[in-house]
Simulated scan of single mutants.
Amino acid sequence: MDIKAVQSSYARWAPVYDKTFGAITNVGRRCAVEYINSRGGSVLEVGVGTGLSLEQYKPDMHVTGIDFSAEMLQKARDKVQALELSQVEELRKMDARTLDFPDNHFDTIAAMHVLSVVPEPEKVMAEIARVCKPGGKVVITNHFERKQGVIASLERLFAPFANTIGWHSDFEIETVLQEDALTLEEQRALPPLGMMTFLVLGKSGG
């Protein structure tokens, strides 16, 4: 994925995102936020988008959100203001490959349906690991490539159009599991049809 392609794609998606792709991914967001709420503390949401998850965080959470799309971020800011979401401390435009936060800074990092749309996801995972506190968790929901079946064939069909549609249909789970500082602790399929996957990765130490 090219960063300019991501910008233009999500500028187009922003006005209709909540009722289209946002609706499809709602189950994953709920699962992720429920898990994060049970931990408490500070959370960084990488790829906060239009802020669909923000009102689901408990009032005593400390939420920071980043996104590279100015159009998406404006939608998120509008939600925060309209709903008076005091748990949201900051929303910033930022490239997830170079996070502007100190090492070991957040209790939990959330990456919900974003890793298959960013350029260089390996760099993003390395940055996520860096800013996560020792003993902290990384919570991921995403679509990953199927190896066989009808859906796998459709994924391969759409793969060449990643820059146009705004996401990689053939994104491999190994891409997010190769970061040495993070260990897979939980993995389960999510509805509909198990198309999305919920992951929890732990950072050693703490």
Rank of each mutant, 00 (worst) to 15 (best):
F68C: 10
H168M: 13
E127S: 13
S38N: 12
G149N: 07
G136A: 04
R146W: 15
D103S: 15
K137C: 06
D107W: 06
V138D: 05
V46L: 07
G136Q: 02
V33T: 08
A82W: 04
L182S: 07
A159P: 05
Q7L: 07
A96W: 05
S153R: 13
E55G: 04
V88N: 08
S38I: 00
E84D: 14
V131L: 06
E179R: 08
E45K: 09
K93N: 00
R188T: 08
V43S: 02
H113Q: 12
S153H: 01
C31N: 11
E34T: 08
A181K: 15
R146K: 11
V43D: 01
H143F: 11
F161D: 01
D100N: 10
P121E: 14
V16P: 02
K203T: 09
G202L: 07
F68V: 14
A162S: 13
E45M: 11
V27D: 05
M94H: 03
G194F: 10
L184V: 06
S42I: 03
Q7K: 13
V80W: 01
G136F: 02
Q7N: 12
A126T: 13
L190T: 07
K75W: 00
V176G: 02
G22D: 02
F161L: 15
H62Y: 10
D18T: 03
R30K: 14
L52D: 09
G40N: 00
G65A: 11
M125K: 06
N163M: 13
V6E: 11
I128A: 14
L199P: 04
F68W: 09
Q74A: 10
R77G: 13
L91V: 01
A159Y: 12
V63Y: 04
A162P: 01
R92E: 10
A11Y: 00
S204P: 00
R29M: 09
V117N: 12
Q81L: 14
T197M: 07
L115S: 10
E185T: 11
L154F: 15
G166V: 05
V117S: 15
A189S: 11
H105L: 05
L99I: 13
V114L: 06
E34K: 14
R12Q: 09
M94C: 10
V63D: 03
N142K: 03
N142T: 00
G28F: 03
A32V: 08
H168P: 00
G22P: 02
T175K: 09
P121G: 11
E89P: 00
G28H: 07
A162V: 14
D107V: 00
V80T: 07
F21D: 13
A152W: 06
A181H: 12
R30C: 05
M125I: 06
G202Y: 03
